[in-house]
Design a protein around this nucleic acid. Structure first.
Lengths: 129, 129
DNA sequence: CCAACCTTGACACGATCTTGGTAAGGTTGG
DNA sequence: CCAACCTTACCAAGATCGTGTCAAGGTTGG
């Protein structure tokens, strides 16, 4: 057997076996299997699991937050939409009256949503896979 | 009065007054106040609220997810740490034996955590506030 | 063969999120 | 002045998350 069993992995990472299965189910760590279906944890997975633990503690966030962050990096539309929504209107680009600025902002949001809704009919840009 | 009251805003955005207060409490939309403390919703906030609604429906995510996404863009350490953690090891950079690659990976994660933990004693880089 | 693992699945509990309500009190407009 | 709005602050209920535990059954190593 190349790696550790789930119980051994639990001991060295600080997660419970239950949580190791949960984390796997959440799609956060991929685990290999033996021919008969036993999970096999290699050094990479162990390190990843320890780091995850520290990450959650350090930034006080939840597994579901990390799962959502994963969605944001993998679904580029989602990431773009959120980043765009967050762009506060700090100051209109110079030279535009604030009425125009507001209109431009509103149209920007509408364009964003339209783009997100629209099936890839005319893909002008594919950023990251 | 320059903008809409909370009830009027609720009618035009599709949120309930209760939810408008909740969203404000979650820090997702800033709302102005009259001298006596009444909330005042301007066109910008209304548009932002409508867009938020569409975002949640379109991508099937929750307010807490958006709130976390906000944290990720504002706390640069958090965003960096997560992005780094997500970097799967697809293939080692050419020329490195996989043992070395694994060691490099492990050290990368440790560096990452050390950097995040360390108080700004020797600030080599201050990216974004 | 048998104890000690592993698997999936389910039930359960506490915590948090989302949402609605309701109560006690201030503001406003006619 | 008074009805109709606003405010904050609670309580509640259903969903989801995080986690443990237990059951029924397969695998493994000595």
């Amino acid at each position: 057997m190349e790696g550790l069993t789930i119980q051994e992995a639990a001991e060295t990472t600080g997660w419970s076996p239950r949580m190791l299965r949960y984390i796997e189910g959440a799609g956060l760590v991929e685990v290999g299997r033996t021919a008969s279906g036993y999970r096999v944890y290699g050094p990479g997975e162990l390190q990843r699991l320890r780091t995850l633990r520290e990450l959650l503690a350090r930034f006080d966030c939840a597994l579901s937050d990390v799962a959502f962050a994963r969605r944001m990096t993998s679904e580029s539309e989602l990431g773009t939409a959120l980043d765009d929504w967050f762009e506060a209107r700090p100051a209109p680009p110079e030279g535009v009256a604030s009425d125009d600025w507001l209109r431009w902002e509103q149209e920007k949001h509408q364009r964003l949503l339209a783009a997100a809704a629209e099936p890839p009919t005319s893909p002008k840009e594919k950023t990251a896979a």
